[in-house]
């Protein structure tokens, strides 16, 4: 596909190509630098960071900051480390992703294969919902959660994340199923398959890629969320991002940079692993979220 740009490139001089490589490598350094800083300094004793050089490798390697970040660091008033919050995040993310993905798939199926009068308006309203600044729903959401007794619970966060993820999951599945041949659905109808049989037997088996894209997108967004987490979580439901921020920005005590870095990597690890394992799908999700239609 880039054969033509290759043709263009071959006419560049050696110097130009060297320059291009230099720029590309320079930017690679820029993107890797913060990660390098975090990793290196999470393996140093605190003194070495204060007196030494942030870019230098540890002189005395230690995993103590990691252990501290995981299980003993002071977060809020409790010296629990990030472990309980990590578990909170897991318990929040898994059902929220499952719920919004399943509903999104069904919505996409209905909106493309069972079209009805006004379906475009329904889809338009769901699509627009992807883009609202969540600040606008914070106050009423807090109130609803309060009224239903879900304030400060993980269930409440699951609900909120699932609902506000619906727009995107519906968008993903709708666009995917739009390209799915409608004749297959018609053939299955003639074969006597019901609404759910058609979905389960005909569409779902071909939905692998879009399910992966959607799950990754939802997982990344919900895992990385801070706004809802900081607004709606209670003592027992604080997600990891909020706990990390509390750890780093607590005004009391000594700033344990090495522990902060270890904690930040812990918080980033799940999404990073997902990215490394299935970057292709991750990028596809980003694109689908950016370039609609």
């Amino acid at each position: 596909m880039s054969a033509a740009s290759q043709d263009v490139a071959t006419r560049n001089g050696i110097f130009a190509r060297a320059l291009i490589y230099a720029v590309l490598i320079l930017f690679a350094v820029y993107y890797l630098l913060p990660l390098y800083v975090m990793v290196v300094n999470s393996l140093k004793p605190l003194d070495e960071i204060r007196q030494g050089n942030m870019l230098a490798l540890p002189q005395q390697w230690t995993i103590a900051p990691w252990l501290s970040a995981w299980s003993t660091a002071q977060i809020g008033v409790q010296p629990t480390g990030l472990k309980p919050y990590f578990l909170n995040s897991v318990m929040m993310v898994v059902p929220a992703v499952a719920l919004s993905t399943i509903l999104g798939a069904l919505n996409g199926y209905v909106l493309t294969k069972w079209r009805f009068k006004g379906d475009n308006i329904v889809f338009g309203l769901m699509l627009l919902a992807c883009f609202i600044p969540f600040q606008i729903v914070l106050i009423p959401s807090a109130r609803i959660l309060g009224m239903t007794g879900l304030a400060g619970t993980i269930t409440g966060l699951v609900l909120i994340h699932a609902i506000y993820g619906l727009g995107f999951t519906t968008l993903f599945f709708r666009n995917y199923y739009e390209a799915f041949p409608t004749e297959l659905v018609r053939a299955a109808q003639i074969d006597g398959a019901s609404f759910f049989q058609i979905f389960r037997r005909i569409l779902l088996p071909s939905s692998g890629p879009i399910i992966v894209v959607t799950v990754i997108w939802q997982f990344t967004n919900i895992w990385n969320d801070f706004l809802f987490g900081s607004s709606f979580s209670g003592f027992n439901s604080i997600p990891l991002t909020v706990a990390l921020n509390n750890l780093v920005n607590s005004s009391t005590g000594v700033k344990e940079y090495n522990v902060h870095f270890a904690g930040a990597i812990l918080a980033a690890l799940p999404t990073l692993i997902v990215y490394i394992v299935s970057g292709r799908y991750f990028v596809r999700g980003l694109m689908a979220g950016a370039v609609k239609g």
Binding site: E183, A187, Q189, I190, S206
Partner: peptide, 20 residues
């Protein structure tokens, strides 16, 4: 009547074979 109750069969332009 629902298509499946009409005792008909249909061959589609794209054949519409279930890919899976």
């Amino acid at each position: 009547l629902h298509p499946s109750k009409r005792d008909i069969a249909m061959v589609f332009q794209s054949y519409a074979l279930y890919p899976n």
